[in-house]
Design a binder for these strands. Sequence first.
DNA 1: CATATTTGTCTTGAATTCAAGGTTTATTTG
DNA 2: CAAATAAACCTTGAATTCAAGACAAATATG
Lengths: 172, 172
Amino acid sequence: MTQANNEDAVEHILEQWHKERPDLDVFAMGVLGRMKRCTLLLEKRLDAVFADFGMNAWEFDVMATLRRCGAPYCLSPTALFSSLMITSGTLTHRLRVLEEKGWIVRVDSPQDARSTLVRLSDDGFRRIDAAVTAHVANEQSLLQGLSAYKQQGLNQRLAELLASLEGENRKD
Amino acid sequence: MTQANNEDAVEHILEQWHKERPDLDVFAMGVLGRMKRCTLLLEKRLDAVFADFGMNAWEFDVMATLRRCGAPYCLSPTALFSSLMITSGTLTHRLRVLEEKGWIVRVDSPQDARSTLVRLSDDGFRRIDAAVTAHVANEQSLLQGLSAYKQQGLNQRLAELLASLEGENRKD
DNA sequence: CATATTTGTCTTGAATTCAAGGTTTATTTG
DNA sequence: CAAATAAACCTTGAATTCAAGACAAATATG
């Protein structure tokens, strides 16, 4: 209360734990807590830009995956849900919505009669191309609170952490 | 393809974008992408420990909030959903489940007849105390991929980013 | 070739969450 | 004090997701 107070919301939680459970070392809890809360706040800010283009985050994700795979902007449902790390049932729902909006079209696969490929429509292409431009600018502005040097430091640490987490995760 | 390959899953996405949209600077996209994926992987690993104590992440969150506020481990529903950053309706559901499990009890508020306070039961207290001990150890082990020095660097950068994001967010 | 297995996709039902609005009790105002 | 407003909590309906499994087509095996 009388201390200097450059605290974020997580700091208060750590102090509560320290008072109640002084036996615990809560440093790691602080790191993960801050990362989670950053992710949450960042998602909200990203959503705002997606909304400017009439889409939500998952619509952006599907369209962006099709866009960045290159011409003819066409993938199988299996490739899509694997890349997006969602279940096949979830993708089925997403594709239905995007098809109704006219942003994707479905094409019968020439190689496999079980499969219908998914392709960006012309409208979908234009829309995701505009959205991703604004999205990237938005992401840059969200990191403006850190100097370019600190942004690189953060990126480096996150890359190392991600590599270590993905490395141990081979059994999944 | 012929380059050295210390890539995480995000690096591949950045390369695709660079090929398709060389006009975009995707550095910031990499930072946010890595943070989001770390958060996702970390959540999975945390869930595994929660499951050892018969709970899931949101059950842990509610119980932990009650535990760390100190004796008598009792808060109003409004204090709880505010602290947990969830809606009142979501809290209603969570409390119903936790009450059925016998981990919380509801007490009429002496000051306000509209309100019934929520308190950890004895069983709930024992359970969350054991769970949080294991949880903190788990969090420490998840950061083992980074040296203590790098963990502190990551924490510092995340704290700065969080502060900048919370600072601008005052309108929410 | 016939059967068995694998692969690709979709359907169903349950869980979780939120937004919007309802009800009850407390507080403020005239 | 009566009426209006605010606060605390709950209910409802819709959205999103997953896990499990159904089904059809492709591939492998004997």
